[in-house]
Design a protein around this nucleic acid. Structure first.
Lengths: 104, 104
DNA sequence: TGAGTGATATCGGATGGCGATATTACGCCG
DNA sequence: CGGCGTAATATCGCCATCCGATATCACTCA
């Protein structure tokens, strides 16, 4: 139901988290689920691949407890895109969110 | 470049504006352009049709200065979806936006 | 009537979404 | 060592969406 509404939000989440600390796919899925986005692997992994192909993420495989994870972190280009998304977000909030919990 | 990031934002804009006052396609395109989203008619109109098909908008043709415009306004179901989007937006802001211009 | 104009509609190739299913790679245990 | 369990990631295939280009529509005015 209108998932296309949230796919952009999800990407912002991903870029942001990948900018804070390296993240891997499965952890992202849990994180997103905590935020109310139900995203399956068939959705998430292609998104990660696309973000990497576009140069916004880069991954590095790492062995953790005998498992191999691909840790993604943001690239400089990714930071630029994230900054633009955050600016748009700020504007969207200023315009389309009832002024609450905000000031100045 | 990563337009899929913004398509959700655009939909929030549309639903919000249609909740404030009746809007027609061409005016929305200008409005969105002012906010930095470059959206052509081949993108916007199918989105309006889809939102209407899903029951979030309803249109009413009206003659204005000899032209026919389709004024869209939000439906109750649209308001519910918008409220959910706004909630997600608030959460996204709280999480992924550097605390600035916000309090508590 | 026909040129002009604001507004909306459609077409079609490319791309993306996503549930279901498969694959990979390791530890563990007998 | 096999082969089972499991965490993590990958892929398949169908369907929906995207969107620039182009067409259509409806009305005014000369």
């Amino acid at each position: 139901m209108l998932r296309e509404l949230f796919l952009g939000f999800i990407r912002v989440h991903i870029l942001f988290h990948a900018g804070e600390a390296p993240v891997w796919g499965a952890a992202l899925m849990e994180e997103l689920a905590r935020h109310g986005y139900r995203v399956g692997p068939g959705t998430l992994y292609p998104i990660l691949h696309a973000l990497e192909r576009q140069g916004y993420l880069r991954h590095e495989p790492r062995a953790v407890e005998g498992r191999i994870r691909k840790y993604y972190r943001i690239t400089p280009a990714g930071r630029r895109i994230l900054a633009r998304a955050q600016a748009q977000l700020r504007e969207l909030v200023r315009e389309a969110l009832p002024a609450r919990g905000r000031s100045r």
